[in-house]
């Protein structure tokens, strides 16, 4: 357990180099080493999605990946995507519809929803429910979350029309 590896990871656009234990999960690295506590651990099993982060442009579970595996990768978290404004439309819609209660699942929900918004601009309500079904929310019952994402998708579609 005393062995360390040096890992260089671009986190929210900035390269960081740290000596990490090979057994350390990415989510623990982000939270404990970098203080990026916006991403959460909940099931520690890859089921609930609370630890969702973005690796090289694609969402991944931070609890199913080791920090050393992210060496050379680009990692985005809710903190970075908030600062860049990328999550702004979803955050606004989630806020106005109260699509969160305790907020513990919310960063993971937002990252997952943002991937859907970016990759499936024509998603129907049912496709949204399907896509989001890997993220557990124990508070809301999901309907307001689905409403919020649908609103963002529909608004974008309207905006994209000539």
């Amino acid at each position: 357990m005393d062995e360390f590896f040096e890992a260089t990871i671009t986190v929210n656009g900035k390269a960081v180099t740290r000596r990490v234990q090979p057994r350390q999960h990415l989510i623990d690295f982000l939270r404990d080493e970098l203080g990026l506590t916006g991403s959460h651990t909940a099931c520690e099993h890859g089921v609930c999605g609370a630890c969702t982060v973005r690796i090289d442009g694609q969402i991944r579970r931070g609890c199913l990946m080791l920090a050393v595996q992210a060496h050379g990768c680009s990692v985005d978290t809710v903190e970075g995507l908030t600062d860049s404004g990328e999550l702004g439309a979803l955050q606004q819609e989630f806020h106005e519809r109260n699509a969160l209660q305790c907020g513990f699942c919310t960063p993971g929900m937002l990252l997952t929803a943002q991937e859907l918004v970016a990759t499936q601009p024509d998603a129907t309500r049912e496709e949204i429910r399907d896509f989001m079904s890997g993220n557990l929310c124990r508070c809301t019952g999901y309907q307001s979350i689905i409403d919020a994402i649908e609103e963002v998708i529909v608004t974008r579609r309207k905006g994209a029309q000539p």
């Binding site: 506590t37 903190e79 806020h95 969160l100 919310t106």
Partner: peptide, 14 residues
Amino acid sequence: ARRLLQGRGTYTDD
């Protein structure tokens, strides 16, 4: 809710 949406909540483990 705004700070929770930005990942800026403070849960006890934080």
